[in-house]
Each structure stands twice: as structure tokens, then as C-alpha cells.
Write a protein that binds this DNA or RNA. Structure first.
Length: 377
RNA sequence: GUGGGUAUGGCUUAGUUGGUUAAAGCGUCGGAUUGUGGUCCCGAAGAUCGUGGGUUCGACUCCCACUACCCACC
């Protein structure tokens, strides 16, 4: 249940009530694809990083260790010792981004595993069954994420199929939630809006899926290579057609600036690999902009990554030390930087919520939207 | 002391029968990264080829001397 607390322009401040607790929105979900945040971060660390929701991936967990294993181990929450909300991505994106051989048919997708080449079939029902086994708080619909740029005719055909798949997802989820052996019988389901960069396809699709009364609505298929202005334009076009009493999730986005701009247009939820991936590559986010920790200027720099930051890394270690760890190839470097970046993203969301609470989000946006996209001087 | 071997960017090496701007990896420096195939990708700087002579139209490549290091033998 989404409760709208306050609104400034199109930006929404709300609460999302789930069987695993209330989430303060807008919020960022920390990506732990294989039931772990890359860089050596455990669920215990996440509590110190202001993480509200962890995201895991259906495709990856199905391939390894197998959703049956996680089901037998009592579900994802027990498996990775995390009692707060978990969202599982449906696997649709992976089928289209990394499976080598794939054949899309009406019933679903045939593809070969990236781990061992084994033939796998995944359709709407299979994705729901796997996610039910994983017992996440929120399951995502099985969709097709078309590549950018897309041809209109293909995008139209694809998005219509995605709608049909969504109807099957919903029916299967209702069936699974009614089974006595299901771990999480209150598993929620989000639909995913597609339609590439075509306004009419996007709007028509959102109108169609809004009728299904799902637990939330995602905008997918963005941040796949198109310019940020195109992404913002799609949000401007499609969000007026998303239900106001349901959370809106912009999938896979993005930079701090993208997130501020998304909130500005009415998005409530985000996820992105950027804070963790960039951190492992020594790029960190600060309130003065982005910087690269391996840069020479940090060799003798005794200051923390960000002087305003209270994260476990900034409270304890210098830029000089972390730079040395990166240069030496120590895995601790990635861990410390990932902790900082996740804390930064979660703090960014907290600041956005505070700004909305205090009716000053417009000022916040004007100040930080350009600043956070820059390199730190 | 004698004989043999090796000297090429910071390091380890490639350089074909002598032929134009001397190649690669690592390291250094900078950049990239958007529903994650853990150490990945892109770019840049950096070498008067140990020193000095000689042969040649032309030498990192051939010859001589010297220097340094390595090996073997007295």
C-alpha cells in the first residue's frame, strides 16, 4: 500500500507499506544481484548504510544456486539474513542483456545459461514461480527490454506481448500466493512499462497495465544508451498515466542527477549498479561531485572521501589510505568505497525526502542536480 | 686473471637476411561505467636502443674498444 504524504510539483513524498515493513519514499534499492552486494558487503553492513530495500535477481539466482535451493533454505530473507524488504528483478533484462542464444516466442524465451550454456526456458509463469520460491517482498513482471535504438514496429509488437505476459504473471502470482506451501503468500507484483522511446507506445502501454491494479508500476527499458533528455521526456509523457496511489519505479537508474530529476517528475523508487560498480572501479560520489580515488592528487591526502560524510569509511579512513589499497589491488579498497557510495546514495534519498518534507525540493534540485553531475574540483 | 654471455621507456622482454615515425605486457597518469557474467573497458605520457668509435646510402641489428652485470674455469 502506497501512502502519499506530501507533494511538491510532481515530486512525491510517501510511505510504501509492505509485509516486511514500511519504506520511506522516494528511496533507492541497493543492488545485490546474487544475494550479495558486490564488494564484500553483507546484510549486517547494509543496516549501517541506511539501506531500506535490497534488490536481488531472479535470473542469476535461478541459474545459481537454483531457486529450489533458496526455497529449501527458507527463502531469500532467511538465506541472506535480511529481514527488510527485498525486490527481485524478474530476469527479463538478463535474458536480453547477457544470454547468448535466445529465441523469443509467445510462451516465453528460450536461451542458454551464461554459466554453463545449459538450455533454459523462462516465461511469465516460470519467472513468477522462481520469484515465489525466492519469497521476495516484491516480484517484478517478466517483460521484454528492447534494445536502443528500437524500430517502431518491433517495439509495438514487443510491448503488446509484454502486456499479455503481464496478465499471465498476475494470474500465476495469485495462484502461487494461494498455495499452502508458498513462503510469502503476500508477495507483491509490479508491472513494467515498455515502449522504447515512442511516446504513443509508452502511454498506451501504461494505460493498459494501469487497469490491472498491480502493487506498483515500473518504467523499464530506459537508461539503455539513450540521452538523459530522452529519458526525462519519456517520464514526462508516461507518468501522468501511472496510478497515483501506487509506487512508481524507474528501473536501473541511475546517476545522482538522474535520480533527482526522476523524483522531480514523480518517481518513487530507483535501483542502479552504479554506486557499487563505480566504487569497485575507484570512482566515488561526494557532495562536491564525482572523483576518482586513484588520482595522483590523493597520494598524501589525509581527508576522508567526503568531509561531510558520516559513513563507516569516511569516519575511519583517509583518501591516501584508500588510494593505496586500490593501487595495491586489495579487496578492502572496493569494500570501503562501496560502503561509501551506497551510504551516499541512501543519504541522497534521505536528503530528498527531507527537502520534500520541508517544501524545499525545488531549491534542492536547483542546487544539487547540476553539482552532483560534475567532477569534484 | 682467462673464456663465454647479456646490455632496448620505471620493470620484464620483442625486434625477422642491416631499410622510413623502435613493439608488447606490467607499472605510471587520465577517462569511462545506468533492472551487475567480481580483478573489466578506453585513452595518454614515457626510450637520443650501456658508452665511444668504425663499416654502410642507411645500424637496435655488423666490426673494434671501453664500462656494468651474469655464468664457467684457473
Amino acid at each position: 500500500m502506497y501512502k502519499l504524504l506530501k507533494q511538491e510539483g510532481l515530486a512525491r513524498r510517501g510511505e510504501f507499506h509492505t509485509p516486511h515493513g514500511v519504506i520511506q519514499a522516494p528511496f533507492f534499492m541497493n543492488v545485490g544481484t546474487s544475494a550479495a552486494i558486490k564488494g564484500g558487503i553483507s546484510s549486517l553492513d547494509l543496516k549501517d548504510l541506511k539501506c531500506q530495500v535490497e534488490l536481488c535477481n531472479t535470473y542469476h539466482l535461478h541459474v545459481r544456486p537454483g531457486d529450489d535451493v533458496i526455497y529449501k533454505m527458507g527463502g531469500l530473507h532467511k538465506f541472506m539474513n535480511w529481514d527488510k524488504p527485498i525486490l527481485t528483478d524478474s530476469g527479463g533484462f538478463q535474458v536480453f542483456s547477457l544470454a547468448k542464444l535466445r529465441k523469443i516466442k509467445e510462451e516465453g524465451v528460450y536461451f542458454s545459461s551464461h554459466v554453463d550454456g545449459k538450455k533454459i526456458f523462462m516465461g511469465p509463469e516460470e519467472s513468477m514461480q522462481i520469484q515465489s520460491h525466492l519469497a521476495s517482498t516484491i516480484a517484478m513482471a517478466f517483460d521484454e527490454c528492447v534494445e536502443n535504438p528500437a524500430k517502431y514496429d518491433y517495439a509495438k509488437e514487443s510491448v503488446e506481448r509484454t502486456t499479455r505476459w503481464l496478465i499471465r504473471c498476475k494470474a500465476e502470482m495469485e495462484r502461487l500466493n494461494s498455495l499452502p506451501e508458498t513462503i510469502n503468500k503476500k508477495q507483491m507484483l509490479f508491472g513494467i512499462n515498455q515502449g522504447a522511446t515512442f511516446d504513443d507506445l509508452r502511454i498506451k502501454h501504461m494505460q493498459d497495465i494501469a487497469k490491472l491494479d498491480l502493487d506498483g508500476y515500473a518504467v523499464g527499458g530506459l537508461a539503455v544508451g539513450e540521452p538523459a533528455e530522452v529519458m526525462y521526456h519519456i517520464l514526462d509523457a508516461v507518468l501522468p498515466y501511472a496510478p497515483v496511489d501506487k509506487p512508481r519505479y524507474l528501473m536501473g537508474v541511475g546517476t545522482p542527477t538522474n535520480i533527482i530529476e526522476g523524483v522531480y517528475r514523480g518517481i518513487d523508487m530507483f535501483d542502479c549498479v552504479m554506486p557499487s560498480r563505480n566504487a569497485r572501479h575507484a570512482t566515488v560520489f561526494t557532495w562536491q561531485g564525482i572523483t576518482h580515488l586513484t588520482n595522483n592528487c590523493y597520494t598524501l591526502d589525509d581527508k576522508p572521501i567526503d568531509e561531510e560524510c558520516d559513513c563507516p569509511t569516511c569516519r575511519n579512513f583517509s583518501r591516501s589510505y584508500i588510494r593505496h589499497l586500490f593501487k595495491s589491488g586489495e579487496t578492502l579498497a572496493g569494500r570501503l568505497a562501496v560502503q561509501h557510495n551506497l551510504y551516499f546514495y541512501n543519504t541522497l534519498m534521505e536528503k530528498i525526502r527531507d527537502a520534500l518534507d520541508n517544501d524545499c525540493f525545488e531549491d534542492f534540485r536547483n542546487h544539487y542536480s547540476p553539482l552532483l553531475a560534475q567532477k569534484r574540483k
